[in-house]
């Protein structure tokens, strides 16, 4: 039966296209990249537009910045991907790394999660996670109510086309633009529904630090 449906749907499509439509070729004359004076500054501004906080952090100051952020959010039990760098695991915080994979109850009972990211997009204020280095699997950044994300200035691209060109489509990808939100009441955006309600971004000079 299933293969019957497949055959029939494909057959209907071929019959429907009996007039052999020959559409206009796709012209990609839109901007694939755009010159911006300060791509990282624009990223910071646009992330902040979505009520996420952005903190600039100098080289070597990251652990102190992480500690300060966690203190400010009263986050004592934190999640992290298995490869969370040692110096990000600041003291006086209970760290739960996702190895072996944590059960969902544990994810739900922690105050927040600390990760890096794959890339970030200035124009849209977006962070992209691809389950790669310092990110872990997707649920880690979903279940806890607080996400602290470290973004390297060298990970920031200006436009959406530049971002897609750098990503591997078959990895599980999550584009995050601010904390979870809804426009479902009177088409007006309010932040904070099912995903993390608080997003803090720490901007460091290079991701590999």
């Amino acid at each position: 039966m299933a293969s019957g449906a497949r055959r029939e749907v494909l057959g209907r499509i071929r019959a429907a296209l009996a007039d052999r439509p020959s559409p206009e070729p796709v012209v990609r004359d839109y901007d694939t990249c755009r010159a911006v004076d300060d791509a990282v500054g624009l990223f910071a501004e646009r992330v902040a537009d979505y009520r996420a906080t952005v903190t600039w952090v100098g080289a070597g100051e990251l652990p102190a910045a992480i500690a300060a952020a966690l203190r400010a959010r009263s986050a004592r039990a934190m999640l992290g991907p298995p490869d969370l760098p040692g110096d990000w695991r600041v003291p006086d915080v209970e760290w739960h790394l996702d190895e072996p994979p944590l059960v969902v109850e544990r994810l739900d009972s922690c105050d927040g999660v600390l990760t890096g990211c794959a890339i970030a997009i200035s124009e849209t204020g977006t962070i992209v996670l691809d389950a790669g280095a310092t990110q872990g699997r997707r649920v880690l950044t979903l279940v806890p109510d607080y996400h602290l994300c470290v973004v390297g200035a060298d990970q920031v691209v200006v436009s959406v086309p530049e971002a897609l060109a750098r990503l591997d489509p078959v990895r599980p990808l999550t584009f995050i633009s601010g904390p979870s939100a809804t426009s479902d009441i009177e088409l007006d955006r309010v932040e904070g529904v099912h995903g993390p309600r608080t997003l803090d971004v720490l901007l460091v000079p290079t991701a590999g630090t």
């Binding site: 849209t124 977006t126 389950a131 997707r138 489509p169 990895r171 599980p172 990808l173 999550t174 633009s177």
Partner: peptide, 16 residues
């Protein structure tokens, strides 16, 4: 400029 979340997946990713 961008919606809060966009998810992209391809088939099944073991462990994720």
């Amino acid at each position: 400029r961008m919606n809060p979340y966009t998810s992209i997946w391809t088939g099944v990713t073991p462990g994720d």
